[in-house]
């Protein structure tokens, strides 16, 4: 299968998972967001070519995370949204600490190979996790603030407007901060700018695709509210 087809499949798959978490209720939404984020940062060092452009693997996963975050703030309020940012940060720091601590041990001879692979992966992940979380905190706080700012002005209608406007602006912020911090110096500046552009366009497509899922999620009655 081509990367393009796979990307769309993975995106819709992850959106459906987000929808499932929305149905199950608040605990599930938060766990879904945090687990997705951690896995994303453990694998996000991998780059792929899509439509002739080089970009990061994480874009389809972001779709599910955007959806889950928007459902969380829409349904449970601003503070719930702010809180999940800090929970993700704490989980990310814990994940990195544990991974690095496990790598301090001198492995058995037969585990040496897996130790090396893990060291390569998690050392690459270290800078990406740090950059990712700086970008994530700034962008998500802005996203939630802007979402509620629009909500206060336009009322209950125009879910699509606050959903898309907040996600698009905050992801522009996120992409610029993340890619600059994560890759500045390791790749030429030309491709840095290209990666930002491609990353933002990818996330913009993903953000628009999650709109019907957002309306579906709004219709669902979560199990913990029945």
């Amino acid at each position: 299968m081509s990367n393009e087809l796979l990307m769309f499949l993975l995106m819709f798959w992850w959106l459906s998972m987000g929808l499932g978490a929305a149905k199950m209720g608040r605990d599930w939404l938060q766990t879904f967001i945090v687990v997705s984020y951690i896995c994303l940062y453990a694998t996000n060092a991998k780059m792929i070519d899509i439509f002739g452009f080089t970009t990061l693997i994480g874009i389809p996963i972001y779709a599910g995370i955007f959806l889950a975050t928007d459902v969380l703030t829409e349904r449970y309020g601003k503070q719930a949204g702010y809180r999940v940012i800090w929970i993700s940060l704490a989980a990310g720091i814990t994940f990195t600490t544990c991974a690095q601590a496990a790598l301090l041990f001198k492995p058995e001879p037969f585990a040496q190979e897996i130790h090396n692979a893990m060291a390569l992966l998690f050392d690459a992940a270290l800078r990406i996790i740090a950059a990712g979380f700086v970008a994530y905190i700034i962008a998500q706080r802005f996203d939630i603030w802007f979402y509620h700012w629009i909500h206060e002005r336009t009322g209950e209608n125009r879910l699509w407007l606050r959903n898309n406007a907040s996600t698009l602006t905050s992801q522009l912020l996120d992409t610029v901060i993340f890619i600059t911090l994560a890759f500045y110096g390791t790749i030429p500046n030309d491709s840095l700018i290209q990666m930002i552009a491609v990353g933002f366009v990818g996330k913009a497509i993903v953000a628009v695709c999650d709109t019907p899922f957002m309306y579906l999620a709004k219709k669902l009655t979560p199990l913990d509210m029945k």
Binding site: D27, T31, V35, I38, A91, F95
Partner: peptide
């Protein structure tokens, strides 16, 4: 909630 997140995080690692 934080304990659930801890359990989820620990399965990731």
């Amino acid at each position: 909630m934080w304990l659930y997140i801890y359990i989820g995080m620990s399965t990731c690692i």
